[in-house]
């Protein structure tokens, strides 16, 4: 783990491991587990809580 003070730590709900996130994460943000690549969604800031992000759906896009 780095010494970056502008970071926070949260538990990956899939692996149970702690992962480091930027301190400015916000509700709804999608973050990747740097090891597994799994997409996780920030669902709470206090306490910082992650959930597995929803699966891709057919009408998603731009």
């Amino acid at each position: 783990m780095t010494e970056d003070t502008d970071s926070v730590v949260a538990e990956d709900p899939i692996t149970g491991e702690e992962i480091e996130l930027p301190a400015d994460v916000e509700i709804g943000e999608i973050v990747d587990n740097p090891v597994t690549g799994a997409e996780l969604e920030v669902v709470s800031l206090d306490p910082l809580t992650l959930e597995e992000a929803p699966e891709l759906e057919e009408d998603w896009g731009e």
């Binding site: 916000e26 509700i27 709804g28 943000e29 999608i30 969604e41 920030v42 992000a53």
Partner: peptide
């Protein structure tokens, strides 16, 4: 929104 991607983060 339903996801805050990098695009939305930049805007916010």
């Amino acid at each position: 929104y339903s996801r805050i991607r990098k695009d939305e983060k930049l805007l916010l």
